[in-house]
């Protein structure tokens, strides 16, 4: 199956798929479990079509922002209501596909799911199970090269999420608005730390000395970029937590802890 264990290539004849003695299987297993759990939660919430808005405090969950379905509550729809209200279409169907594609083509998530879902490879120096490998040279994986366009879309969507957060603060300060604030700060950090952003702001030029502002921007994004993996996970956590908190307040399971107003 793998050239690592095939003798005909002239390599050392070792039949073991790997001789690693550490728990190399644990990180891909945890990644698989974490991503699967998040996707299941997000899918259920995106199609639930209820408990997404707290009118009293202007809390709109990021999973429903912008709410553009005819089925949206009028006060939650800040950008009009024009998508048909059908069960199979999430209320934020205008933006969710772009966010999904932004994360799907993200250089960190690619590493994560190539390793944990596709096992190519499951871990370093552990033979993969596939007979052939062409990487990202042909359709559909060639489409990973479109990452920068989903990055542009993600920036626009982050602006909308920022607007939602500002609206929440116009109704006072509560635990919900602080959660929204933490979420949006981390969302911006994740979005800006993107490898495509790093290339666009300055990485693509060769003469930094002639572009001092771009060089500064590149340095800033490069520093953030070293934390891209952590930010990818933090934002999955804050997105789910923010959504769950707003759902809990909206459904009346808990009441928002108010600080001001």
């Amino acid at each position: 199956m793998s050239s690592t264990t095939d003798a005909f290539t002239g390599r050392a004849q070792i039949s073991a798929r790997t001789l690693r003695t550490d728990r190399w299987w644990l990180p891909p297993l945890l990644t698989f479990a974490g991503l699967t759990a998040w996707v299941v939660y997000a899918t259920v919430r995106a199609f639930l079509q209820e408990n997404y808005y707290v009118a009293e405090y202007n809390y709109l969950t990021p999973f429903y922002s912008p709410c553009v379905s005819v089925g949206c509550l009028e006060e939650a729809a800040h950008f009009g209501r024009f998508l048909p209200d059908v069960w199979w279409l999430p209320y934020a169907a205008l933006t969710l596909p772009f966010l999904l594609l932004f994360r799907l083509t993200c250089y960190y998530y690619r590493k994560a799911y190539y390793r944990s879902f596709w096992l190519a490879p499951p871990a370093c120096a552990v033979a993969e199970p596939h007979k052939r490998y062409t990487g990202e040279t042909r359709f559909p994986l060639l489409g990973q090269n479109l990452h920068r366009y989903f990055f542009y879309a993600a920036v626009l969507i982050s602006v909308i999420n920022t607007y939602d957060t500002v609206l929440a603060f116009t109704a006072g300060v509560g635990l919900g608005s602080i959660i929204l604030l933490i979420n949006i700060v981390l969302l911006w950090a994740y979005t800006i730390s993107c490898h495509s952003c790093r290339s666009i702001v300055g990485g693509r030029i060769n003469n930094f000395s002639k572009h001092p502002a771009r060089y500064k921007s590149w340095q800033f994004v490069s520093r953030l970029n070293t934390k891209h993996m952590q930010l990818a996970w933090y934002t999955l956590g804050t997105l789910a937590f923010t959504d769950f908190y707003i759902m809990a307040v909206s459904a009346g399971w808990i009441s928002d802890l108010r600080i001001v107003g």
Binding site: Y114, C124, G135, T137
Partner: peptide, 24 residues
């Protein structure tokens, strides 16, 4: 030179004894 074959799973970076961030 097959750049498209690289699926950025970062094993090159993990094993580099000079700690060069090859992938990033």
């Amino acid at each position: 030179h097959g750049l498209g074959m690289c699926n950025i799973t970062k094993c090159c970076t993990e094993v580099c004894p000079e700690h060069i961030k090859i992938t990033d």
